[in-house]
Amino acid sequence: MHIQRTVFREDHEMLRETARRFFERECVPRQAEWDQAGKVDRQTWLKAGREGLLCTMIPAEYGGGGGDFGHGTVINEEMHRAGVSGVSFGLHSDIIAPYIVRFGTEEQKHRWLPSICSGETILALGMTEPGSGSDLKAARTTAIRDGDEYVINGSKTFISNGLNCDMVLVACRTDLTAGSKGISLIMVEATRDGFRRGRKLDKVGQRASDTAELFFDDVRVPVSNLLGEEGKGFAYMMQELPQERLGIAIYAAIRLERLLEQTIDYVKERKAFNQTVWDFQNTKFKLADAKAASVAVRTMVDYYIGEHMRRKLTVEEAAIAKLFATETLWKHLDDMVQLHGGYGYMLEYPVARAFVDLRVSRVFGGTNEVQRELIARKL
């Protein structure tokens, strides 16, 4: 049964074809190389920029695609349909760059965005800290004003694009006594004295994602690098997090559908006890459950995509999408590994690769326990 999707326009689908060809041509053949290196080569970032696959939602006057959330979504979907892992185009384009568009001055937008849209400047997001995890209000990295500069001290961890990044959007405490109202967002160039990258973190999956620790030791940046108003950083992050969480739900939906297709193909060919694995009733029942679940996730996610394109998505709805999509994906992914038998544990099979790559979907973007708390507040 094929679900007729109505949320996308013709211009979205045209970009989908461009994205599909790009990921199949430029990314799938390089996946093993990137896994080995622990990061994606910068040439691929520049190629993505030339093909219009970065910053599709950024206005054209700043070098972006001038599109909407649907354009970013089809790129996200095609990357994950291809099984590409660890390429952080979405983080760069759809999570960090919009902060500059929404909260930056015209001077900041014209100064920073053109090279961000072209892939010359790679962005990272410095929110998570070693001692606080998903609790963004507990940030301890400080930015103390000294004349026309901020002096930043502290550290961040689990930072995607940490090794490749040229600029970091850093959540800093500019007022030590104001709680969540003491947090500000400051752009920090990686060339600043006192900025250094720690080790590449050794993750279970997503090996090509260059995840690192970042350290700030008396890093001086001009006050003109402040994004938006001082003390409004936490409120800004709360405004932008729903889109990030919906993005995670979107790729959970597409990965569940694709893994189901691959598992059906596998069990119909794999022989066991003089029949195919498909011939066992248990197999049919497990896959029927997975199919029903994938339709439910797809229906929900497409509804929320439409709501977000109308700027109506709430914090609660984004939490529901992220929680349900990732928990459902994980349950059925575990079943699909089981249906592959021993081959489900071999990384040459997509289902095994997905098993290690996708476990983090229930952790990042705010753990699913945080999503449950957000949902419960509205009960």
Results as ranks from 00 to 15, higher is better:
residue 333 L to K: 05
residue 323 L to K: 02
residue 346 M to W: 11
residue 327 E to A: 04
residue 355 F to N: 11
residue 350 P to R: 08
residue 314 T to P: 08
residue 326 T to G: 04
residue 321 A to W: 00
residue 316 E to D: 10
residue 357 D to A: 05
residue 344 G to T: 05
residue 327 E to M: 05
residue 342 G to L: 11
residue 356 V to T: 15
residue 331 K to C: 08
residue 312 K to L: 14
residue 322 K to Y: 04
residue 320 I to A: 01
residue 357 D to F: 02
residue 348 E to T: 09
residue 350 P to L: 09
residue 315 V to Y: 10
residue 322 K to N: 05
residue 329 L to F: 08
residue 332 H to M: 07
residue 357 D to Q: 08
residue 353 R to N: 12
residue 335 D to F: 12
residue 313 L to I: 06
residue 332 H to Y: 13
residue 314 T to V: 07
residue 355 F to Y: 13
residue 357 D to G: 05
residue 329 L to G: 01
residue 311 R to V: 08
residue 361 S to N: 14
residue 359 R to N: 10
residue 345 Y to A: 13
residue 321 A to Q: 00
residue 356 V to F: 06
residue 331 K to Y: 14
residue 350 P to T: 13
residue 347 L to G: 09
residue 351 V to A: 06
residue 311 R to H: 15
residue 333 L to V: 04
residue 327 E to H: 06
residue 325 A to N: 00
residue 335 D to W: 07
residue 315 V to K: 10
residue 358 L to P: 04
residue 337 V to S: 04
residue 331 K to R: 15
residue 351 V to L: 09
residue 326 T to I: 02
residue 340 H to L: 06
residue 319 A to M: 02
residue 351 V to Y: 03
residue 312 K to Q: 15
residue 330 W to V: 03
residue 339 L to Y: 05
residue 311 R to I: 08
residue 335 D to L: 05
residue 312 K to N: 14
residue 360 V to Y: 12
residue 321 A to F: 00
residue 359 R to K: 10
residue 362 R to I: 06
residue 337 V to H: 03
residue 321 A to P: 02
residue 316 E to K: 01
residue 357 D to M: 06
residue 338 Q to H: 09
residue 354 A to K: 00
residue 312 K to E: 15
residue 361 S to P: 04
residue 356 V to S: 09
residue 361 S to Y: 13
residue 318 A to D: 06
residue 322 K to P: 00
residue 324 F to D: 00
residue 348 E to N: 11
residue 311 R to A: 15
residue 337 V to E: 08
residue 318 A to F: 00
